[in-house]
Design a protein around this nucleic acid. Structure first.
Lengths: 160, 160
DNA sequence: CGATGATGGTTGAGAGTTCAACTTTCCGCC
DNA sequence: GGCGGAAAGTTGAACTCTCAACCATCATCG
């Protein structure tokens, strides 16, 4: 037992329970998602998100910075990932027209095809694990809850 | 736009919104947790969980299988992780007395110390990101929701 | 007793991520 | 114009994770 140490706001038993179950639910979800995407599209979820964001962008292209913010990656991680996706022929990189620092990533037709083929299975997976077990009310509550978490509170901003 | 493809149960706009925000909230949480643990204890969250599970086990030891199930790792991942932790001097491995196949991992005193030092900051981080932004009612709802997700539904079991 | 399969665990290679260092380009200001 | 700092990206090394192959031990059953 660790919680004999005072002056720490330890979790109550109920909170502990929620936290542990939250971790478990998350693991279930990620394991299933990664397995499905790896099987059906040969890429991890982070890469799928990159393609998905690009596919929705005007002209199917975004700067690396925009992309990094949208998928929540560090610049480094994104750069490596895009290198990989480029190598697979799913994304192309080019220099920005007017700003020489920024590079623009664009989705290729091949990339779009791969995405389109993986999407139905992916959505089905998300649905069956996350949404199907929940009632409509619970889904609404979940929406409120996650919104509360991502909304900046008091102190520091959520480093977006 | 991808959703012109029919015969897929696409997410509604509301569901899409919940899903995206869920992903964002998760990223926030994991980024913060990993940063804090890396800074304060020099290990990723998965490793922290291993130490935490061991610390709560009778005699502070568990078999690799038990440990793997509790932290939700593949045997391989756990084996690599424990190797690393052993190398750091925080965990020791030994052969099981009666079953020659199983190996038992036990938390060392050093391991316990590291854990004890990292725990307060970790709990504080979980609290400030996950629990503090939520009302007590929301926490309870969240508990119900994650329980519903981890509970086996209809078809296949959640591969625990 | 000995083959057969199941259980428990490890290993190595390849893929992904992190972290810090670095380059290049742009902006503001003297 | 040129200097200093900020912004945008990239790179390489160290680390973690995944996946498949593998070894050893146990259990069972003919």
């Amino acid at each position: 037992m660790l919680c004999h140490v005072k002056s720490t706001r330890w979790l109550s038993d109920d909170e502990q329970q929620v936290w542990r179950t939250y971790l478990l639910a998350n693991q279930l979800l990620w394991a299933a998602l990664d397995r499905q995407l790896q099987r059906d599209a040969g890429m991890p979820h982070a890469y799928y998100m990159i393609l998905a964001m690009l596919s929705e962008a005007p002209n199917r292209e975004l700067t690396m910075s925009q992309l990094a913010r949208m998928v929540g990656s560090s610049p480094s991680r994104l750069s490596h990932a895009v290198s990989r996706l480029e190598q697979a022929g799913w994304v192309r990189r080019r220099k920005h027209d007017t700003d020489g620092r920024t590079t623009v990533a664009s989705l290729t037709d091949d990339g779009f095809t791969v995405l389109a083929e993986a999407a139905p299975g992916h959505v089905e997976e998300v649905r069956s694990i996350l949404f199907d077990p929940l009632t409509p009310e619970q889904i609404e509550r979940l929406g409120e809850i996650v919104s509360a978490i991502v909304t900046p509170h008091d102190g520091r901003a959520p480093h977006l």
